[in-house]
Design a binder for these strands. Structure first.
Lengths: 352, 352
DNA sequence: AATTAGCAGGCGACAAAAAAGAGTGCTAAA
DNA sequence: TTTAGCACTCTTTTTTGTCGCCTGCTAATT
């Protein structure tokens, strides 16, 4: 275990490096609070921290840079998460109070707010498909060969899609579809809209395959679709590490692969906030970056995941603070949302 | 006016520079077809072309690079647009035959196909709002306080949005809304969904403002919304001009501003294909790039605009060829679409 | 009059050498 | 245990020199 002064030295190095992006010398951090000693003493401490693997030299006579182990220790043990200013609090509150019609928009607003405050790039994605339950399905005929399907989920999301047919459809058919799908799927996860369901409806329930197949195919598609939303890509280019074309190129490659990002956000652990530092990222392309993912919810309902992509020397402290504050703010939404849900449930009862 | 050989020299310089991105020397282009003379002769021609402003030197003893005037002349007078291979034709045909449920997807498919074949970045956007006519509006109650509005336009696009109310809505109200909106708006441009309409419905028709206002606000929003779609951003980073961080940064800045791109695509001239070279671009950020915009349609109905962003030494020839071929292919869609439209019109008649 | 061969001169690109600067490790003293 | 001091290492920046490319010009040729 590190003694207090070593912790203090490590913290100083990490924070200084986060601020300047330059290797930190013994001179630079002496005289800081808790480090009132000579640079020689600090050099001795640094030598030991290096032996333990928390910091590294870029070359033999350079200052020190945190290693990934060093960042990890910093994040786990030394981080103070109250680095958020009054102005920022006000700005966030303001943003989150925007009235939204679709909850999806809320995720995007949270995402762009985080990007604006932290100056890092954010990506966001809707809730994991397998935790969403179907609350209601509605088919609406738009023209004889064109139908719209609307799925309401328990977390308040709405998914719609157009379905086209090669033959005319009657209002009657739409009505039985409405009945059948709701009967079969209400309360089930949306992933239940699948091949077996198609088989069941055609083989057992004797629906025409020409009718059912396009419906299942299209609904399955819209349900599985991951809408990745990106914010603030250009901001990272202001950072000194982006002077390396290699890094810049890597970064654009990442952004260009939406599926890659969707993966990244979905494969988080159970925790609401996860931090992946450099090599800890599963994706090769992200090994020079740190990613913080943030699953946000209203009440206990998953609303989606936001990922912050920044350099390894990301200002973890600021990022975590902002997330925690947003989390807190969003739980305030909870009551409003409950009201809404009651309303919807009444509606359902009326129809049954 | 340039004599034939000067044209040939200019053409050779432009094409060589497009291929290599290196200043073109008199040696490099001699012996090309139509230029069977010594390098000295070519140097004389080059000196004159430079005096006329078609080509430039990067430094006093360097080879020549086309000026923007040079590119412009090349594009207007020298370009041959049959630079498309059999493989590419096959690839495009294949892609465009994908079955789409929403015409919007077709624009995206065209856009990504172009990006894949040319290796440039493409952006795409739906049709200009003021050319789209309302064919049908449908309101559907999803729950007592939540309604969905669907707008079908004459070019086959579907726009949907959720509207939330602070008080319960009855099926009856929805029915009169359906009647009223269709009655008032069928055949009108979608931009007619605006403040004055709200005023009319509330003041003249005595609808409750609590009912109408959210409808108009939300529908207006969805109608005006520009969905910009981006494809192949990373590809430009393979180009040698992206070795300059300055250029790379500029490029990411452009991509990050979706409104800027929407603007760019909307402000085209009447022609279907427009070419903007360097400074010809309205946007300062694009002055190092060339943009080719391509308004594509089925029959005479605008389906959206695709923009190709590349270096000034873009392979205009390839780009134009691909676009023309896609245009041709899409007109094949026309018949299918007409069938579809007839179907829809039948549906309308039935309801009236 | 148009074309060409040949050559001097200008400039960038690259490499090697030199100089400057920053920070460490170590030693010896406090 | 801490500190002052210094030699040493390595990067960064600047300087210098060389090489090669390409042009413009001149004089000769067609």
């Amino acid at each position: 275990m590190l003694d207090e002064r070593k912790k203090r030295v490590l913290q100083a190095i990490v924070e200084e490096y986060i601020k300047t992006a330059e290797p930190v010398s013994s001179n630079a951090i002496m005289n800081l609070e808790g480090l009132e000693c000579s640079s020689a003493t600090i050099r001795n401490e640094m030598a030991e921290l290096e032996k333990l693997g928390y910091i590294e030299k870029t070359h033999i006579s350079s200052g020190r840079v945190p290693s990934e182990k060093g960042y990890r220790f910093y994040v786990d043990e030394l981080l103070e998460d109250d680095k958020i200013t009054v102005d920022e609090i006000e700005y966030i509150s303001d943003k989150l109070e925007t009235k939204v019609n679709e909850l999806e928009d809320l995720t995007q607003i949270a995402s762009s707010t985080i990007s604006e405050i932290t100056h890092y790039t954010t990506v966001s994605i809707g809730p994991n498909t397998d935790v969403q339950l179907i609350e209601n399905i509605k088919f609406v005929l738009l023209s004889p060969r064109m139908m719209m399907a609307v799925i309401l989920t328990d977390n308040g999301l709405v998914k719609e899609t157009i379905i086209k047919f090669d033959e005319d459809i009657t209002e009657n058919q739409v009505n039985t579809l409405n009945y059948m799908f709701n009967n079969k799927l209400k309360g089930e996860p949306i992933t239940k809209i699948d091949k077996p369901l198609e088989k069941y409806l055609v083989d057992e329930m004797k629906y025409s395959v020409n009718l059912i197949k396009p419906i299942i195919v299209q609904m399955k598609k819209v349900v599985e679709e991951e809408k990745v939303h990106l914010e603030g890509a250009k901001q990272l280019f202001e950072l000194p590490e982006f002077n390396s074309l290699e890094v810049a190129k890597n970064f654009v490659n990442i952004l260009d692969e939406k599926e890659l990002m969707a993966d990244m956000l979905n494969n988080g652990y159970a925790k609401d906030i996860n931090i992946y530092i450099g090599e800890e990222n599963e994706k090769e392309e992200l090994k020079d970056f740190s990613v913080v993912t943030f699953k946000h919810r209203i009440g206990n309902k998953d609303l989606g995941t936001i990922g912050i992509i920044g350099p390894k020397r990301m200002d973890y402290s600021k990022v975590i603070s902002v997330m925690k504050y947003i989390s807190k703010k969003l739980s305030g939404y909870s009551e409003e949302n409950n009201e809404e849900k009651e309303g919807r449930e009444n509606g359902r009862r009326k129809k049954e």
